[in-house]
Structures are given as C-alpha cells and as structure tokens.
Simulated scan of single mutants.
Amino acid sequence: MDKLSIAGLLLALAAVFGGSTLKGSGAAALVSPAAFVIVIAGTIAAILVQTPGPTFRRALRMVRWVFRPPVLDWEDEIDAVVHWARRARQHGLLGLEPDLAGVVDPFTRRGLQMLVDGVEPAQIRAALDVELDTLEGRDAAAARVFEGMGTYAPTMGIIGAVMGLMAVMQNLADPDKLGAGIAAAFVATVYGIGLANLLFLPMAAKLKATIAGQSRARELMIEGLVAIADGEHPSSIHNRLQGFRVQR
C-alpha cells in the first residue's frame, strides 16, 4: 500500500474542506449534486469519446497502481538472472527449462523460453525490445486517460458555473436568492479545478512513474537474458545489472 498516495488524497480533502470552513463559507457550501453530476459525467463523457475501449478498460485496471503499485524488487530480479547464468554455465541452456514453471511474469517467461530454445542473442533482444515498446505504449496510453480527464474537468467546471449563473439570472427579481445562487454556481468550478489538480493529473503522473519503473525492470531482464545467451560469466552479469538498482 502506497501510504504517500493515501496521505496526499486525505490532505487534499482536508485542504479543500478545511479551507472552505476557514474562509467562512463552511464545508456544506461545497456540496452540490448538480455540479458533481455536470463535472464528473461531463468529464467521463469527454474521455469516452476520446479513448478506445481497450485503453479505457486498461486505465480502469491501472487505478489500483496509484495506491498499490507493483512491487519491483531489483535485488530479486538480479539474483534470478545470476542464478540462471550459473545454471546455464553448469548444465547448458536446456538446464534452464525446469525454471520456466516458476516464472510468473509473462515477459520474463517468454524471454527465458527463447533462451532455452537456443534463440540467437540478437534475436532475443529484438523480440523483447518490440514487446517492451508495446507494453510501455499500451500502459502509457492508459495513463494519458487520466491526463485527459485532468484537462477536461476544469472546462466542465466552467460549463457548470455558467449553467448555474444562467439559473441565477432567471431569479434576478428575487435578490434574496442571488448570493446563494452565485455561490452554488461556482462550486462546479471548484469541483473541476480541484479534481483535475488534486486527483486526475497526480494520478497520471504517478502511473507514468510506475510504468517507467516497470520498463526499467524489463530492460534489466533483457540485458541479463542476452548476456546469458552470449555466455558471459555470472559475476560479470551481476556487476553489469547492479547499475539498474534503484538507490533507496
């Protein structure tokens, strides 16, 4: 669980509602079902028009990464590659076949299978590079869904504010309703700008960082598998892959 994401979300809510209370308008002033429907439904409608179905579904599945990102244990990855290098040195590439069943990640398993099959190092690198680009492009497109929502939400907030002001203009004959009506109209703007800058855009940035980390881990695996195919010494492979470690 990513505690920073949870803390950031809670702090954002506290900042908005606490700020509204300190300004004297009160937290209740931010509650507007009509504004919420306009901003949320409008933003979702816009992103649905923009986004292909598979990309949108992928974006929904990736939301959990904001609060529970995939765990990347660099030491375990390096140790696995070095273990395979030692095993291949002792028993040959076919000796790696029993290890295939224990590999969960499809990308790694495909690379290890090519290694067992005796595919040339250059071909292994080429095939895995193509798959890496495809996976990275797919996930980056999904992350851009939230970037798009961060772009559309403020505009929908303005639309909601204008619609609210239109309703206020219809009640100009009743001055007692003008103040509350104008305040309610601008709640939609708060929703749009707040959701964009406190939720959607930070989510997109967090997902992009996670995607970059996954791509780096896959690059590590490509380098390791190709080095094994080239017959490099396990110690040399270990030293090379140490450069991929994330400093904590």
Score class of each variant (00 low, 15 high):
6 I>S: 13
11 L>Q: 12
14 A>M: 15
16 V>H: 07
16 V>T: 08
16 V>R: 11
19 G>I: 00
20 S>D: 00
22 L>Y: 14
22 L>E: 06
24 G>I: 06
27 A>S: 15
33 P>Y: 11
35 A>F: 12
36 F>I: 02
37 V>K: 15
38 I>T: 10
38 I>H: 11
38 I>S: 05
39 V>N: 08
39 V>T: 01
39 V>R: 08
39 V>P: 13
40 I>Q: 04
41 A>Y: 11
44 I>L: 15
45 A>Q: 03
47 I>G: 00
47 I>Q: 14
48 L>K: 14
51 T>K: 09
53 G>P: 08
53 G>R: 12
65 W>A: 01
67 F>I: 07
70 P>K: 04
74 W>C: 06
76 D>P: 01
77 E>G: 05
78 I>Y: 00
80 A>P: 06
84 W>M: 03
90 Q>G: 10
94 L>W: 01
95 G>S: 02
98 P>Q: 10
100 L>V: 11
105 D>H: 07
107 F>W: 05
108 T>Q: 09
109 R>Y: 12
113 Q>I: 02
114 M>W: 08
114 M>N: 10
115 L>V: 05
117 D>A: 01
118 G>E: 13
123 Q>A: 13
124 I>A: 11
129 D>C: 07
134 T>K: 06
136 E>R: 02
136 E>G: 01
137 G>F: 10
137 G>T: 02
138 R>E: 13
138 R>P: 07
139 D>Y: 00
141 A>D: 11
143 A>W: 06
147 E>K: 01
148 G>Y: 06
148 G>I: 02
151 T>V: 08
151 T>L: 10
153 A>R: 02
154 P>Y: 05
155 T>Y: 04
160 G>P: 09
160 G>M: 01
161 A>E: 04
162 V>K: 10
163 M>Y: 09
163 M>E: 09
164 G>S: 08
165 L>G: 06
167 A>N: 14
168 V>H: 12
170 Q>R: 15
172 L>C: 14
173 A>M: 03
173 A>V: 06
175 P>M: 03
175 P>R: 08
176 D>M: 09
178 L>A: 04
180 A>H: 12
182 I>A: 02
186 F>G: 03
186 F>P: 03
190 V>A: 13
192 G>L: 00
193 I>N: 05
193 I>F: 13
195 L>Y: 07
195 L>C: 04
196 A>G: 01
197 N>R: 10
198 L>A: 14
200 F>Y: 11
202 P>I: 01
204 A>Y: 04
206 K>T: 08
206 K>V: 01
207 L>Q: 04
207 L>S: 05
209 A>K: 09
209 A>T: 13
209 A>I: 02
213 G>A: 14
215 S>R: 12
215 S>I: 00
215 S>Y: 01
229 A>K: 04
229 A>V: 02
230 D>C: 06
235 S>Y: 00
235 S>P: 03
236 S>D: 07
240 R>M: 12
240 R>P: 03
243 G>N: 09
246 V>H: 15
247 Q>N: 05
248 R>D: 06
248 R>Q: 10
